[in-house]
Amino acid sequence: MATVLIPLAQGCEELEAVTVIDLLRRAGIEVVSAGLDKQPVRASRGTVLIADTDLDSALQQDYDMVVLPGGMPGADHLDNDPRIQALLKEMAANDKYTAAICAAPKVLASSGVLGDKKATAFPGVLEALGKTPAAGAVVADGRVITSRGPGTAMDFALKLIEVLVSKDKRDEVEKGLAK
């Protein structure tokens, strides 16, 4: 069974975080949500999220994928956390998946994981880094998967299921959503 870590920073975009967690779990993927500290996470719209664990504890195991929800200032908190930066570099070095949505692709960029890969993000995020976003709501380039924002969260999560499990599992989960 695939394992996925989803770090939750204060000010993350709750729709992105919860959608990805929910759909991956529907696909039978083991998901660990981890707060950057041991406090409840107040998301960007004021929703309070309780993570499964804290990041230090979560980092005691290995994952097949790390998914970064966006939102502000959540993406900045992820970007400024040396544990996240080290984890992303380690995932890339071990040929594992890194994924980010909305403002969070900038974290992939600052860690060096994004490099010259095609990516998308919330409008203006990649442009501010001097990078032209690729067309599409969800962009996969090798082991890096990015998406635009809250409105693309469901398609993003379905793509993650497809790469971690199979197209059949993606279709099964999508059908159950009556999309």
Rank of each mutant, 00 (worst) to 15 (best):
V4E: 08
I6M: 11
P7G: 12
A9C: 07
Q10N: 11
G11I: 01
I21E: 11
I21Y: 14
D22N: 13
D22W: 11
L24A: 10
L24P: 04
R25E: 05
R26G: 07
G28E: 10
G28M: 08
V31K: 13
G35D: 12
L36W: 06
P40S: 07
R42S: 07
A43V: 14
R45A: 11
T47C: 13
L49V: 15
A51T: 15
D52G: 13
T53C: 03
L55M: 10
L55A: 05
L59K: 06
D64V: 00
D64T: 00
M65P: 03
V66T: 12
V67D: 04
G70H: 06
P73R: 13
P73M: 15
G74Q: 08
A75C: 03
L78D: 01
N80H: 12
I84R: 01
I84K: 01
I84S: 05
Q85H: 14
Q85D: 15
Q85C: 07
Q85N: 14
L87A: 08
L88C: 04
K89F: 09
M91D: 02
A92Q: 14
Y97N: 00
T98S: 08
A99K: 09
A103Y: 04
A104S: 10
A104T: 09
P105C: 15
S110T: 06
S110C: 09
S111I: 12
G112E: 04
V113Y: 09
V113I: 02
K117N: 09
K117D: 00
K118P: 02
K118R: 13
A121E: 00
P123S: 14
V125D: 00
A128M: 10
A128V: 02
P133C: 09
A134Q: 06
A134L: 09
V139D: 11
V139P: 02
V139E: 08
G142K: 13
R143E: 01
V144N: 11
I145D: 06
T146R: 07
R148E: 01
R148Y: 01
R148M: 08
G149C: 01
T152V: 06
M154N: 04
D155S: 12
A157D: 12
K159F: 06
L160T: 14
I161K: 08
S166P: 01
K167M: 11
K167I: 02
D168F: 13
K169H: 09
K169M: 15
R170I: 00
D171L: 05
D171G: 01
V173W: 12
E174Y: 13
K175H: 14
A178C: 11
A178F: 15
